[in-house]
Simulated assay, not measured.
Amino acid sequence: MSPREFQHLIARVTAQLAARPLDASLATWLNATWPSGSDTYRELADACRTGVAEGWLCNREHGGIRYGRVIKPTPDTHGFSVDVVDMQDIAGPHHMHPNGEIDLIMPLTDSATFDGHPAGWCVYGPGSAHRPTVAHGQALVLYLLPQGAIEFTRDSSSA
């Protein structure tokens, strides 16, 4: 799996997402269409694990979190950027999603959760904010951000 092959894999997914609103119905659709255990989920998870092992994913580290933006928003990815993080029992920096965020949760420890969600998909709508948290183990999380938009903030729990 090369970064270019990874981008082609992501483009197959983002092609299905480009015209959809980022809301709870999208999360339901994603978890029904590509649930954990499906071929697409396994292919994405395998690609992410390979990318981390080869060093082109999660190639930065800060505060115990490995991360990296592997794809900037382009027409090839239907305007989505792609970031992948590797977190273990930690809360990340508080941030806001001006255009929303789609997350693919890939536990490396069976019991690991992301913001309380197990393996699968989670969607945050436009204007939402959170302090991303992996609990009960280690997980990779793939973030799809429309137009790459993210705003890091300060809140009382992260100050």
Rank of each mutant, 00 (worst) to 15 (best):
D86V: 04
P132C: 06
R66Q: 15
V82Q: 02
V85S: 04
Q88S: 07
R131D: 05
T40M: 15
S157E: 14
L9D: 09
D103F: 13
P118F: 06
G51C: 06
S36L: 02
G137W: 08
L30G: 05
T109C: 07
R12I: 01
N59R: 12
M87V: 14
V52D: 13
P126D: 01
L17Y: 13
L145W: 01
A47W: 00
H78L: 01
P118R: 11
R4H: 14
E61Y: 07
V13R: 04
T28L: 15
A15H: 01
L17T: 06
V123C: 09
F114I: 08
H117E: 13
D83M: 10
N59V: 00
P118V: 01
S81K: 01
G127M: 07
M87Y: 04
T50Q: 14
T153I: 14
A19N: 11
A18M: 03
I150T: 04
R66D: 02
G51A: 11
S128G: 07
I90N: 13
P146K: 01
Y124E: 02
S25P: 01
P98Q: 05
E54A: 14
L108F: 02
F6H: 13
E151N: 11
H130T: 12
W34D: 13
G148K: 09
L22I: 00
T14A: 00
Y143V: 03
D83G: 03
R42D: 15
M96P: 00
G68M: 11
T133Y: 04
P3L: 08
A139F: 02
L145S: 10
F114D: 07
R4E: 09
M87A: 14
G137Y: 11
L30T: 04
R131N: 08
P73A: 05
V85P: 00
T109W: 05
L104N: 02
T74P: 03
L44R: 05
V70E: 10
Y124C: 03
H8S: 15
R66P: 01
E54M: 09
C58P: 06
I105Q: 06
L44C: 09
P3C: 09
A149Y: 01
V141M: 10
